[in-house]
Amino acid sequence: MVAVLEFAKGHGTRNDFVLVTDADDARPLTDEEVRFLTDRRAGIGGDGILRAVRGRHIPEWDGDPDVWFMDYRNADASIAEMCGNGVRVFARYLVEEGLVPEGTTEIPIGTRAGLRAAALLDDGRVRVWMGRPATADSGTTVQIGDSNWPATNVDVGNPHAVVLLGEGDELAELDLTRAPGWFPLEAFPSGVNVEFVDELAPGHVRMRVFERGVGETDSCGTGTVAVASAVARAHGETDGRWTVEVPGGKVEVDLAQGEAWLTGPAEIVARGSVRLPGEEIDD
């Protein structure tokens, strides 16, 4: 059994990930190992794990068997369908690791939410096609302490509840040290990512997010798409570009004819090796 794991560390607007390559699914990570690797004190630290594996090894994947699949795990080891910042970082990783042909700028990536297409731009950012967000006003209410707000439900391949804050609500004052509640509970039986939004100007918003399986993060890529979609719906708009500020920076979300694109930075900041807990070093 492999005792030492080679890894990279990357982030997109400070939404950070540990990345590993396991093309042939020879070394799936256990839940304990995922939690260890993402631990910010005892491990490497990250909001999640991105494992690069060929699509043929993922039971849920029925597309191109040779596509690079982003096997994404949250910090608590739960599986997530999609991660917008993660896809950008994953695309950067594939290029820097030489896992795609030299000079490649358009990369198909398999996810549990379906195929995504990433484009590496000349300015260093990565633009990702995020599919067709589904937005609905379905009576969901989000609660923090004694305060509650109506939320817009948005599916970006994973579930979101978007709260558009009103006058008198202070985004910076919200307590996101614990998960917000929601009701009815059956609206999100597998949990939900919750975004809180301030509108700064037409086409310009600021948000905070509590991600299921992680906690409050500095950014959530699918969350920024959900926010742009919810704000557009609230204003009776369908197409346009939104600048979305998050604690970790800012991204751009483009909506056109029911589809969405997310553009933002993606960096690989470190590489190394780590001894997994409970492993014996091979001779």
Rank of each mutant, 00 (worst) to 15 (best):
M1H: 10
E6V: 02
F7T: 01
F7E: 07
A8K: 00
T13D: 10
F17H: 05
F17L: 05
D22S: 10
D22V: 07
A23G: 10
A23V: 09
D25G: 14
D25L: 13
P28T: 08
L29R: 02
T30L: 11
D31T: 10
E32V: 12
E33L: 08
E33M: 06
R35A: 03
R35G: 00
R35Y: 09
F36P: 00
A42G: 04
G43W: 00
G46P: 01
D47W: 01
A52E: 13
G55L: 11
G55N: 11
H57N: 14
P59C: 11
E60L: 13
W61K: 13
D62P: 15
D66C: 12
V67N: 13
V67I: 15
W68L: 12
W68P: 08
D71F: 08
Y72C: 11
A75N: 12
A77D: 11
E81C: 03
E81F: 08
E81R: 11
G84Q: 07
V87F: 01
V87Y: 07
R92P: 02
V95L: 00
V95W: 00
E96S: 03
E102G: 00
E102W: 00
G103C: 04
T104W: 01
T104K: 05
T105P: 03
R112M: 03
R112Y: 06
A113P: 02
G114D: 05
L115Y: 04
R116H: 14
A119Q: 14
L121C: 05
G124P: 01
G124K: 00
V126C: 08
V126K: 07
W129I: 06
M130L: 09
G131K: 04
R132H: 13
P133V: 02
G139M: 14
G139Y: 06
T141K: 13
V142Q: 14
V142N: 13
V142P: 09
G145N: 14
D146C: 14
W149N: 13
V156G: 09
P159Q: 11
P159C: 09
H160C: 03
V162Q: 03
V163A: 12
G166D: 12
G166V: 08
A172Q: 14
E173M: 14
D175E: 11
L176N: 11
R178C: 13
W182R: 06
P184F: 04
L185C: 10
E186A: 13
E186F: 03
P189R: 01
P189S: 02
D198H: 15
A201N: 12
A201Y: 06
P202R: 10
V205K: 07
M207V: 08
M207R: 05
R208G: 09
V209W: 09
E216P: 01
D218R: 15
C220G: 08
G221Q: 04
T222G: 10
V227H: 07
S229H: 04
A230Q: 06
A232C: 06
A234C: 12
A234W: 04
G236A: 10
G236D: 12
G236V: 00
G236Y: 09
E237T: 12
E237V: 04
V246R: 02
V251G: 01
L255H: 02
Q257K: 12
G258S: 02
A260F: 08
W261P: 02
L262H: 08
G264V: 07
G264K: 07
P265C: 05
I268G: 01
A270P: 01
A270N: 06
R271K: 10
R271C: 00
G272Q: 04
L276G: 05
P277I: 04
